[in-house]
Design a protein around this nucleic acid. Structure first.
Lengths: 128, 128, 128, 128
DNA sequence: GTGGTCTAGACCACC
DNA sequence: GTGGTCTAGACCACA
Protein backbone atom coordinates (compact mmCIF):
# COMPACT_ATOMS: atom_id res chain seq x y z
CA UNK A 1 0.00 0.00 0.00
CA UNK A 2 1.10 3.50 -0.89
CA UNK A 3 0.39 6.50 1.31
CA UNK A 4 0.18 10.09 0.19
CA UNK A 5 1.13 13.13 2.20
CA UNK A 6 -2.17 14.95 2.07
CA UNK A 7 -3.56 13.21 5.13
CA UNK A 8 -2.05 11.30 8.07
CA UNK A 9 -1.25 7.65 7.51
CA UNK A 10 -3.58 6.49 10.27
CA UNK A 11 -6.48 8.24 8.54
CA UNK A 12 -5.60 6.62 5.23
CA UNK A 13 -5.56 3.25 6.96
CA UNK A 14 -9.05 3.79 8.38
CA UNK A 15 -10.30 4.71 4.92
CA UNK A 16 -8.59 1.69 3.44
CA UNK A 17 -10.35 -0.52 5.97
CA UNK A 18 -13.65 1.21 5.26
CA UNK A 19 -13.20 0.18 1.65
CA UNK A 20 -12.26 -3.40 2.56
CA UNK A 21 -15.48 -3.69 4.52
CA UNK A 22 -17.64 -2.12 1.82
CA UNK A 23 -16.11 -4.48 -0.77
CA UNK A 24 -16.76 -7.36 1.62
CA UNK A 25 -13.06 -8.17 1.37
CA UNK A 26 -13.42 -8.28 5.15
CA UNK A 27 -16.65 -9.96 6.14
CA UNK A 28 -18.52 -9.21 9.33
CA UNK A 29 -17.77 -10.76 12.69
CA UNK A 30 -14.44 -12.16 11.59
CA UNK A 31 -11.02 -11.70 13.05
CA UNK A 32 -8.85 -9.19 11.22
CA UNK A 33 -5.04 -9.18 11.03
CA UNK A 34 -3.28 -8.49 14.31
CA UNK A 35 -1.78 -5.08 14.88
CA UNK A 36 1.72 -6.41 14.27
CA UNK A 37 0.80 -8.31 11.12
CA UNK A 38 -0.99 -5.31 9.70
CA UNK A 39 1.96 -3.08 10.59
CA UNK A 40 4.33 -5.38 8.73
CA UNK A 41 2.03 -5.71 5.77
CA UNK A 42 1.59 -1.93 5.45
CA UNK A 43 5.24 -1.28 6.33
CA UNK A 44 4.22 1.02 9.10
CA UNK A 45 4.84 1.32 12.82
CA UNK A 46 2.48 -0.78 14.99
CA UNK A 47 1.45 2.34 16.90
CA UNK A 48 0.06 3.79 13.70
CA UNK A 49 -2.06 0.70 13.12
CA UNK A 50 -3.26 0.76 16.73
CA UNK A 51 -4.38 4.32 16.22
CA UNK A 52 -6.39 3.41 13.14
CA UNK A 53 -7.92 0.34 14.77
CA UNK A 54 -8.87 2.35 17.87
CA UNK A 55 -10.66 4.95 15.80
CA UNK A 56 -12.59 2.27 13.97
CA UNK A 57 -13.45 0.73 17.32
CA UNK A 58 -14.83 4.08 18.51
CA UNK A 59 -16.89 4.22 15.34
CA UNK A 60 -18.34 0.81 16.21
CA UNK A 61 -16.90 -0.79 13.08
CA UNK A 62 -14.34 -2.93 14.88
CA UNK A 63 -14.54 -4.73 18.19
CA UNK A 64 -11.80 -5.94 20.42
CA UNK A 65 -11.58 -9.20 22.32
CA UNK A 66 -8.97 -9.01 25.03
CA UNK A 67 -5.86 -10.95 24.33
CA UNK A 68 -7.35 -12.40 21.17
CA UNK A 69 -7.52 -9.63 18.63
CA UNK A 70 -9.78 -7.29 16.67
CA UNK A 71 -12.95 -8.37 14.92
CA UNK A 72 -15.26 -6.66 12.45
CA UNK A 73 -18.54 -5.73 14.10
CA UNK A 74 -21.83 -7.42 13.35
CA UNK A 75 -23.28 -4.56 11.32
CA UNK A 76 -19.94 -3.12 10.20
CA UNK A 77 -20.84 -2.73 6.55
CA UNK A 78 -24.09 -0.91 7.22
CA UNK A 79 -22.33 1.38 9.66
CA UNK A 80 -19.58 2.26 7.22
CA UNK A 81 -22.00 2.95 4.41
CA UNK A 82 -24.19 5.10 6.64
CA UNK A 83 -21.19 7.04 7.90
CA UNK A 84 -19.83 7.65 4.44
CA UNK A 85 -23.20 8.70 3.07
CA UNK A 86 -23.64 11.23 5.83
CA UNK A 87 -20.19 12.66 5.22
CA UNK A 88 -20.88 12.84 1.54
CA UNK A 89 -24.13 14.74 1.95
CA UNK A 90 -22.93 17.05 4.68
CA UNK A 91 -19.44 17.85 3.42
CA UNK A 92 -18.87 16.99 -0.21
CA UNK A 93 -22.21 18.04 -1.68
CA UNK A 94 -22.32 21.57 -0.22
CA UNK A 95 -18.78 22.16 -1.53
CA UNK A 96 -19.80 20.84 -4.90
CA UNK A 97 -22.84 23.08 -5.13
CA UNK A 98 -20.90 26.12 -3.94
CA UNK A 99 -18.27 25.50 -6.61
CA UNK A 100 -20.93 25.04 -9.26
CA UNK A 101 -22.50 28.33 -8.29
CA UNK A 102 -19.37 30.45 -8.34
CA UNK A 103 -18.09 28.83 -11.52
CA UNK A 104 -21.41 28.84 -13.33
CA UNK A 105 -21.42 25.09 -13.89
CA UNK A 106 -24.78 23.40 -14.39
CA UNK A 107 -26.03 19.93 -13.62
CA UNK A 108 -25.97 19.20 -17.33
CA UNK A 109 -22.24 19.94 -17.41
CA UNK A 110 -21.75 17.55 -14.51
CA UNK A 111 -23.66 14.89 -16.40
CA UNK A 112 -21.40 15.32 -19.41
CA UNK A 113 -18.30 14.90 -17.25
CA UNK A 114 -19.91 11.92 -15.57
CA UNK A 115 -20.50 10.09 -18.84
CA UNK A 116 -16.91 10.83 -19.81
CA UNK A 117 -15.70 9.52 -16.47
CA UNK A 118 -17.68 6.30 -16.83
CA UNK A 119 -16.37 5.81 -20.33
CA UNK A 120 -12.79 6.16 -19.08
CA UNK A 121 -13.42 3.67 -16.33
CA UNK A 122 -14.74 1.17 -18.84
CA UNK A 123 -11.75 1.65 -21.09
CA UNK A 124 -9.42 1.00 -18.17
CA UNK A 125 -11.27 -2.17 -17.26
CA UNK A 126 -11.11 -3.45 -20.81
CA UNK A 127 -7.38 -2.77 -20.91
CA UNK A 128 -6.66 -4.72 -17.76
CA UNK B 1 -14.77 36.18 9.36
CA UNK B 2 -14.98 32.71 10.85
CA UNK B 3 -12.37 30.05 10.16
CA UNK B 4 -12.85 26.33 10.45
CA UNK B 5 -10.25 23.80 11.48
CA UNK B 6 -10.41 21.58 8.43
CA UNK B 7 -7.85 23.60 6.47
CA UNK B 8 -5.11 26.09 7.37
CA UNK B 9 -6.18 29.66 7.92
CA UNK B 10 -3.90 31.00 5.19
CA UNK B 11 -5.63 28.70 2.68
CA UNK B 12 -9.03 29.90 3.83
CA UNK B 13 -7.89 33.48 3.35
CA UNK B 14 -6.76 32.83 -0.21
CA UNK B 15 -10.13 31.26 -0.97
CA UNK B 16 -11.88 34.22 0.59
CA UNK B 17 -9.93 36.58 -1.63
CA UNK B 18 -10.66 34.43 -4.66
CA UNK B 19 -14.33 34.92 -3.90
CA UNK B 20 -13.90 38.68 -3.42
CA UNK B 21 -12.35 38.90 -6.86
CA UNK B 22 -14.97 36.73 -8.54
CA UNK B 23 -17.75 38.82 -6.93
CA UNK B 24 -15.93 41.94 -8.14
CA UNK B 25 -15.92 43.13 -4.55
CA UNK B 26 -12.26 43.72 -5.34
CA UNK B 27 -11.91 45.13 -8.82
CA UNK B 28 -8.84 44.69 -10.98
CA UNK B 29 -5.73 46.81 -10.79
CA UNK B 30 -6.70 48.41 -7.50
CA UNK B 31 -4.86 48.57 -4.22
CA UNK B 32 -6.04 46.07 -1.63
CA UNK B 33 -5.87 46.43 2.18
CA UNK B 34 -2.39 46.37 3.67
CA UNK B 35 -1.19 43.25 5.43
CA UNK B 36 -1.64 44.90 8.82
CA UNK B 37 -5.16 46.16 8.08
CA UNK B 38 -6.20 42.80 6.72
CA UNK B 39 -4.71 41.04 9.77
CA UNK B 40 -6.64 43.30 12.13
CA UNK B 41 -9.84 42.93 10.16
CA UNK B 42 -9.60 39.13 10.09
CA UNK B 43 -8.26 38.94 13.67
CA UNK B 44 -5.30 36.96 12.47
CA UNK B 45 -1.54 37.05 12.76
CA UNK B 46 0.04 39.33 10.10
CA UNK B 47 2.34 36.49 9.09
CA UNK B 48 -0.70 34.49 8.09
CA UNK B 49 -1.92 37.28 5.81
CA UNK B 50 1.54 37.63 4.31
CA UNK B 51 1.50 33.95 3.51
CA UNK B 52 -1.88 34.21 1.80
CA UNK B 53 -0.89 37.30 -0.20
CA UNK B 54 2.35 35.63 -1.30
CA UNK B 55 0.54 32.60 -2.60
CA UNK B 56 -1.87 34.79 -4.52
CA UNK B 57 1.10 36.68 -5.90
CA UNK B 58 2.64 33.40 -7.07
CA UNK B 59 -0.66 32.60 -8.74
CA UNK B 60 -0.45 35.93 -10.60
CA UNK B 61 -3.63 37.21 -8.98
CA UNK B 62 -1.96 39.84 -6.82
CA UNK B 63 1.00 42.06 -7.52
CA UNK B 64 3.27 43.74 -5.07
CA UNK B 65 4.68 47.24 -5.44
CA UNK B 66 7.50 47.70 -3.00
CA UNK B 67 6.78 50.23 -0.31
CA UNK B 68 3.30 50.88 -1.66
CA UNK B 69 1.31 47.74 -1.21
CA UNK B 70 -0.48 44.90 -2.96
CA UNK B 71 -2.66 45.32 -6.04
CA UNK B 72 -5.03 43.04 -7.90
CA UNK B 73 -3.61 41.99 -11.26
CA UNK B 74 -4.96 43.18 -14.56
CA UNK B 75 -6.69 39.94 -15.48
CA UNK B 76 -7.18 38.72 -11.93
CA UNK B 77 -10.78 37.65 -12.33
CA UNK B 78 -10.16 35.58 -15.44
CA UNK B 79 -7.20 33.92 -13.80
CA UNK B 80 -9.14 33.01 -10.69
CA UNK B 81 -12.02 31.58 -12.65
CA UNK B 82 -9.72 29.54 -14.84
CA UNK B 83 -7.80 28.22 -11.87
CA UNK B 84 -10.93 27.24 -9.99
CA UNK B 85 -12.45 25.52 -12.98
CA UNK B 86 -9.33 23.43 -13.47
CA UNK B 87 -9.24 22.44 -9.82
CA UNK B 88 -12.89 21.59 -9.93
CA UNK B 89 -12.60 19.28 -12.91
CA UNK B 90 -9.33 17.66 -11.93
CA UNK B 91 -9.87 17.21 -8.19
CA UNK B 92 -13.43 17.64 -7.06
CA UNK B 93 -15.23 15.83 -9.84
CA UNK B 94 -13.20 12.59 -9.74
CA UNK B 95 -13.67 12.43 -5.98
CA UNK B 96 -17.35 13.06 -6.40
CA UNK B 97 -17.77 10.33 -8.96
CA UNK B 98 -15.72 7.87 -6.93
CA UNK B 99 -17.87 8.54 -3.87
CA UNK B 100 -21.03 8.15 -5.91
CA UNK B 101 -19.83 4.82 -7.16
CA UNK B 102 -18.92 3.26 -3.82
CA UNK B 103 -22.02 4.66 -2.13
CA UNK B 104 -24.40 3.82 -4.93
CA UNK B 105 -25.58 7.40 -5.40
CA UNK B 106 -26.95 8.36 -8.82
CA UNK B 107 -27.06 11.61 -10.74
CA UNK B 108 -30.76 11.77 -10.03
CA UNK B 109 -30.04 11.73 -6.30
CA UNK B 110 -27.60 14.58 -6.78
CA UNK B 111 -30.24 16.53 -8.65
CA UNK B 112 -32.71 16.06 -5.80
CA UNK B 113 -30.18 17.35 -3.30
CA UNK B 114 -29.36 20.22 -5.62
CA UNK B 115 -32.96 21.39 -5.83
CA UNK B 116 -33.18 21.14 -2.06
CA UNK B 117 -29.99 23.14 -1.71
CA UNK B 118 -31.24 25.88 -4.03
CA UNK B 119 -34.52 26.04 -2.16
CA UNK B 120 -32.69 26.52 1.13
CA UNK B 121 -30.57 29.27 -0.38
CA UNK B 122 -33.69 31.09 -1.55
CA UNK B 123 -35.34 30.77 1.84
CA UNK B 124 -32.30 32.27 3.50
CA UNK B 125 -32.26 35.18 1.10
CA UNK B 126 -35.94 35.90 1.69
CA UNK B 127 -35.41 35.82 5.43
CA UNK B 128 -32.57 38.34 5.43
CA UNK C 1 -22.15 -15.70 30.61
CA UNK C 2 -21.40 -12.30 29.10
CA UNK C 3 -18.21 -10.42 29.90
CA UNK C 4 -17.69 -6.71 29.62
CA UNK C 5 -14.48 -4.96 28.71
CA UNK C 6 -14.16 -2.77 31.75
CA UNK C 7 -12.31 -5.38 33.81
CA UNK C 8 -10.28 -8.50 32.99
CA UNK C 9 -12.22 -11.67 32.37
CA UNK C 10 -10.50 -13.56 35.18
CA UNK C 11 -11.66 -10.87 37.62
CA UNK C 12 -15.20 -11.13 36.35
CA UNK C 13 -15.06 -14.89 36.84
CA UNK C 14 -13.93 -14.55 40.45
CA UNK C 15 -16.80 -12.15 41.10
CA UNK C 16 -19.20 -14.53 39.43
CA UNK C 17 -18.02 -17.32 41.73
CA UNK C 18 -18.29 -15.02 44.74
CA UNK C 19 -21.93 -14.56 43.84
CA UNK C 20 -22.48 -18.29 43.35
CA UNK C 21 -21.18 -18.90 46.85
CA UNK C 22 -23.21 -16.10 48.43
CA UNK C 23 -26.35 -17.40 46.72
CA UNK C 24 -25.47 -20.88 47.98
CA UNK C 25 -25.62 -22.05 44.39
CA UNK C 26 -22.28 -23.59 45.33
CA UNK C 27 -22.46 -25.03 48.82
CA UNK C 28 -19.45 -25.39 51.10
CA UNK C 29 -17.00 -28.24 51.01
CA UNK C 30 -18.21 -29.55 47.69
CA UNK C 31 -16.35 -30.19 44.49
CA UNK C 32 -16.75 -27.49 41.86
CA UNK C 33 -16.53 -27.90 38.07
CA UNK C 34 -13.10 -28.77 36.71
CA UNK C 35 -11.06 -26.08 35.00
CA UNK C 36 -11.80 -27.57 31.60
CA UNK C 37 -15.54 -27.85 32.18
CA UNK C 38 -15.70 -24.33 33.50
CA UNK C 39 -13.70 -23.05 30.54
CA UNK C 40 -16.06 -24.73 28.09
CA UNK C 41 -19.14 -23.53 29.93
CA UNK C 42 -17.92 -19.91 30.03
CA UNK C 43 -16.44 -20.11 26.51
CA UNK C 44 -13.11 -18.97 27.81
CA UNK C 45 -9.50 -20.06 27.68
CA UNK C 46 -8.69 -22.64 30.39
CA UNK C 47 -5.74 -20.50 31.50
CA UNK C 48 -8.20 -17.77 32.39
CA UNK C 49 -10.19 -20.13 34.61
CA UNK C 50 -7.00 -21.37 36.26
CA UNK C 51 -6.11 -17.81 37.07
CA UNK C 52 -9.50 -17.15 38.64
CA UNK C 53 -9.43 -20.38 40.66
CA UNK C 54 -5.91 -19.63 41.89
CA UNK C 55 -6.92 -16.21 43.13
CA UNK C 56 -9.89 -17.69 44.96
CA UNK C 57 -7.57 -20.26 46.43
CA UNK C 58 -5.27 -17.52 47.69
CA UNK C 59 -8.31 -15.86 49.25
CA UNK C 60 -9.06 -19.11 51.08
CA UNK C 61 -12.39 -19.54 49.35
CA UNK C 62 -11.37 -22.52 47.23
CA UNK C 63 -9.12 -25.43 48.05
CA UNK C 64 -7.26 -27.68 45.69
CA UNK C 65 -6.85 -31.41 46.12
CA UNK C 66 -4.16 -32.62 43.77
CA UNK C 67 -5.40 -34.90 41.08
CA UNK C 68 -8.98 -34.60 42.27
CA UNK C 69 -10.06 -31.05 41.72
CA UNK C 70 -11.11 -27.81 43.41
CA UNK C 71 -13.45 -27.63 46.42
CA UNK C 72 -15.22 -24.80 48.17
CA UNK C 73 -13.72 -24.14 51.60
CA UNK C 74 -15.47 -24.91 54.83
CA UNK C 75 -16.32 -21.33 55.71
CA UNK C 76 -16.34 -20.04 52.14
CA UNK C 77 -19.57 -18.07 52.40
CA UNK C 78 -18.55 -16.20 55.55
CA UNK C 79 -15.18 -15.40 54.02
CA UNK C 80 -16.69 -14.02 50.84
CA UNK C 81 -19.18 -11.87 52.69
CA UNK C 82 -16.53 -10.48 54.99
CA UNK C 83 -14.22 -9.74 52.10
CA UNK C 84 -16.90 -7.98 50.10
CA UNK C 85 -18.03 -5.90 53.05
CA UNK C 86 -14.50 -4.70 53.67
CA UNK C 87 -14.00 -3.80 50.04
CA UNK C 88 -17.30 -2.00 49.98
CA UNK C 89 -16.54 0.16 52.98
CA UNK C 90 -12.94 0.87 52.17
CA UNK C 91 -13.18 1.39 48.42
CA UNK C 92 -16.67 1.91 47.11
CA UNK C 93 -18.06 4.16 49.82
CA UNK C 94 -15.25 6.75 49.82
CA UNK C 95 -15.49 7.00 46.05
CA UNK C 96 -19.23 7.36 46.30
CA UNK C 97 -19.02 10.13 48.87
CA UNK C 98 -16.32 11.94 46.93
CA UNK C 99 -18.44 11.85 43.78
CA UNK C 100 -21.47 13.07 45.70
CA UNK C 101 -19.48 15.97 47.02
CA UNK C 102 -18.03 17.21 43.72
CA UNK C 103 -21.32 16.68 41.89
CA UNK C 104 -23.51 18.15 44.60
CA UNK C 105 -25.60 15.02 45.00
CA UNK C 106 -27.33 14.48 48.35
CA UNK C 107 -28.36 11.39 50.24
CA UNK C 108 -31.95 12.21 49.39
CA UNK C 109 -31.09 12.04 45.69
CA UNK C 110 -29.51 8.64 46.25
CA UNK C 111 -32.65 7.48 48.00
CA UNK C 112 -34.77 8.56 45.06
CA UNK C 113 -32.57 6.62 42.65
CA UNK C 114 -32.64 3.65 44.99
CA UNK C 115 -36.44 3.47 45.05
CA UNK C 116 -36.42 3.74 41.28
CA UNK C 117 -33.85 0.97 41.06
CA UNK C 118 -35.86 -1.33 43.32
CA UNK C 119 -39.00 -0.64 41.31
CA UNK C 120 -37.22 -1.61 38.09
CA UNK C 121 -35.96 -4.79 39.69
CA UNK C 122 -39.49 -5.72 40.72
CA UNK C 123 -40.84 -5.03 37.26
CA UNK C 124 -38.21 -7.28 35.73
CA UNK C 125 -39.05 -10.09 38.12
CA UNK C 126 -42.74 -9.82 37.36
CA UNK C 127 -42.02 -9.90 33.64
CA UNK C 128 -39.96 -13.06 33.81
CA UNK D 1 1.20 15.34 40.62
CA UNK D 2 1.29 11.68 41.56
CA UNK D 3 -0.08 8.97 39.31
CA UNK D 4 -1.30 5.57 40.40
CA UNK D 5 -1.09 2.38 38.40
CA UNK D 6 -4.76 1.50 38.37
CA UNK D 7 -5.52 3.54 35.27
CA UNK D 8 -3.45 4.96 32.41
CA UNK D 9 -1.73 8.28 33.01
CA UNK D 10 -3.55 9.99 30.17
CA UNK D 11 -6.88 9.08 31.78
CA UNK D 12 -5.74 10.43 35.11
CA UNK D 13 -4.75 13.66 33.42
CA UNK D 14 -8.18 14.05 31.86
CA UNK D 15 -9.77 13.52 35.27
CA UNK D 16 -7.39 16.00 36.83
CA UNK D 17 -8.39 18.58 34.24
CA UNK D 18 -12.05 17.78 34.81
CA UNK D 19 -11.50 18.67 38.45
CA UNK D 20 -9.62 21.86 37.59
CA UNK D 21 -12.57 22.99 35.50
CA UNK D 22 -15.16 22.05 38.12
CA UNK D 23 -13.17 23.94 40.77
CA UNK D 24 -12.94 26.89 38.38
CA UNK D 25 -9.18 26.69 38.78
CA UNK D 26 -9.34 26.85 34.99
CA UNK D 27 -11.97 29.33 33.89
CA UNK D 28 -13.84 29.09 30.62
CA UNK D 29 -12.57 30.37 27.29
CA UNK D 30 -9.05 30.84 28.55
CA UNK D 31 -5.82 29.49 27.22
CA UNK D 32 -4.45 26.50 29.13
CA UNK D 33 -0.80 25.48 29.47
CA UNK D 34 0.86 24.35 26.26
CA UNK D 35 1.44 20.65 25.72
CA UNK D 36 5.13 21.02 26.48
CA UNK D 37 4.63 23.10 29.60
CA UNK D 38 2.05 20.68 30.93
CA UNK D 39 4.33 17.76 30.16
CA UNK D 40 7.16 19.36 32.12
CA UNK D 41 4.88 20.30 34.99
CA UNK D 42 3.46 16.77 35.26
CA UNK D 43 6.84 15.16 34.52
CA UNK D 44 5.37 13.20 31.69
CA UNK D 45 6.03 12.73 27.99
CA UNK D 46 4.41 15.38 25.75
CA UNK D 47 2.68 12.63 23.78
CA UNK D 48 0.82 11.61 26.91
CA UNK D 49 -0.44 15.15 27.42
CA UNK D 50 -1.46 15.40 23.77
CA UNK D 51 -3.49 12.26 24.20
CA UNK D 52 -5.32 13.68 27.22
CA UNK D 53 -5.93 17.04 25.54
CA UNK D 54 -7.24 15.35 22.39
CA UNK D 55 -9.73 13.32 24.39
CA UNK D 56 -10.97 16.43 26.15
CA UNK D 57 -11.25 18.12 22.77
CA UNK D 58 -13.42 15.26 21.51
CA UNK D 59 -15.57 15.69 24.61
CA UNK D 60 -16.02 19.35 23.70
CA UNK D 61 -14.34 20.53 26.89
CA UNK D 62 -11.24 21.90 25.21
CA UNK D 63 -10.82 23.68 21.90
CA UNK D 64 -7.78 24.10 19.77
CA UNK D 65 -6.63 27.18 17.91
CA UNK D 66 -4.03 26.30 15.32
CA UNK D 67 -0.54 27.36 16.17
CA UNK D 68 -1.75 29.16 19.29
CA UNK D 69 -2.76 26.51 21.78
CA UNK D 70 -5.63 24.88 23.63
CA UNK D 71 -8.47 26.78 25.25
CA UNK D 72 -11.25 25.76 27.62
CA UNK D 73 -14.59 25.72 25.84
CA UNK D 74 -17.36 28.23 26.47
CA UNK D 75 -19.57 25.85 28.42
CA UNK D 76 -16.78 23.59 29.65
CA UNK D 77 -17.89 23.48 33.28
CA UNK D 78 -21.48 22.57 32.46
CA UNK D 79 -20.29 19.88 30.08
CA UNK D 80 -17.97 18.32 32.63
CA UNK D 81 -20.60 18.30 35.34
CA UNK D 82 -23.18 16.79 33.02
CA UNK D 83 -20.76 14.13 31.87
CA UNK D 84 -19.73 13.20 35.40
CA UNK D 85 -23.31 13.07 36.63
CA UNK D 86 -24.31 10.74 33.84
CA UNK D 87 -21.36 8.46 34.57
CA UNK D 88 -22.24 8.47 38.23
CA UNK D 89 -25.84 7.50 37.68
CA UNK D 90 -25.19 4.94 34.99
CA UNK D 91 -22.08 3.27 36.39
CA UNK D 92 -21.45 3.96 40.04
CA UNK D 93 -25.01 3.82 41.37
CA UNK D 94 -25.97 0.43 39.89
CA UNK D 95 -22.79 -1.06 41.33
CA UNK D 96 -23.57 0.50 44.68
CA UNK D 97 -27.09 -0.85 44.76
CA UNK D 98 -25.97 -4.30 43.65
CA UNK D 99 -23.38 -4.39 46.43
CA UNK D 100 -25.94 -3.23 48.98
CA UNK D 101 -28.27 -5.99 47.91
CA UNK D 102 -25.84 -8.88 48.09
CA UNK D 103 -24.30 -7.61 51.32
CA UNK D 104 -27.56 -6.73 52.99
CA UNK D 105 -26.61 -3.11 53.58
CA UNK D 106 -29.43 -0.59 53.93
CA UNK D 107 -29.69 3.09 53.12
CA UNK D 108 -29.61 3.80 56.86
CA UNK D 109 -26.22 2.10 57.08
CA UNK D 110 -24.99 4.27 54.22
CA UNK D 111 -26.19 7.34 56.03
CA UNK D 112 -24.27 6.35 59.16
CA UNK D 113 -21.09 5.92 57.13
CA UNK D 114 -21.77 9.21 55.39
CA UNK D 115 -22.00 11.15 58.64
CA UNK D 116 -18.80 9.47 59.77
CA UNK D 117 -17.14 10.39 56.50
CA UNK D 118 -18.20 14.04 56.78
CA UNK D 119 -16.96 14.16 60.36
CA UNK D 120 -13.55 12.86 59.28
CA UNK D 121 -13.39 15.42 56.52
CA UNK D 122 -14.11 18.20 59.00
CA UNK D 123 -11.45 16.97 61.37
CA UNK D 124 -8.92 16.95 58.57
CA UNK D 125 -9.81 20.50 57.63
CA UNK D 126 -9.47 21.69 61.20
CA UNK D 127 -6.05 20.04 61.45
CA UNK D 128 -4.67 21.71 58.39
C1' DG E 1 6.39 29.61 19.64
C1' DT E 2 2.16 26.07 18.90
C1' DG E 3 0.23 21.21 18.11
C1' DG E 4 0.44 16.75 15.19
C1' DT E 5 2.48 12.63 13.24
C1' DC E 6 5.48 8.97 13.10
C1' DT E 7 9.07 5.79 14.54
C1' DA E 8 11.67 2.67 17.50
C1' DG E 9 11.70 0.34 21.34
C1' DA E 10 10.58 -1.01 26.12
C1' DC E 11 7.35 -2.91 29.27
C1' DC E 12 2.96 -4.63 30.83
C1' DA E 13 -1.53 -7.13 31.39
C1' DC E 14 -4.23 -10.40 29.44
C1' DC E 15 -5.72 -14.84 27.06
C1' DG F 1 0.37 -15.01 21.16
C1' DT F 2 -2.80 -10.50 21.71
C1' DG F 3 -3.41 -5.26 22.41
C1' DG F 4 -2.17 -0.99 25.36
C1' DT F 5 0.77 2.46 27.44
C1' DC F 6 4.64 5.19 27.72
C1' DT F 7 9.00 7.28 26.45
C1' DA F 8 12.45 9.59 23.60
C1' DG F 9 13.29 11.81 19.80
C1' DA F 10 12.77 13.38 14.98
C1' DC F 11 10.28 16.06 11.71
C1' DC F 12 6.59 18.92 9.98
C1' DA F 13 2.91 22.48 9.28
C1' DC F 14 1.03 26.41 11.16
C1' DA F 15 0.60 31.23 13.43
Amino acid sequence: MQFNNSSPIYVQITQYIHDLIINTAWVEEERIPSVRDMAMQLEVNPNTVIRAYSILQDEGILENQRGIGYFTAKDARTLVLKKKREQFIRRELPNLFASMRTLGITLEDIETYFLLFKKEQNDHEIES
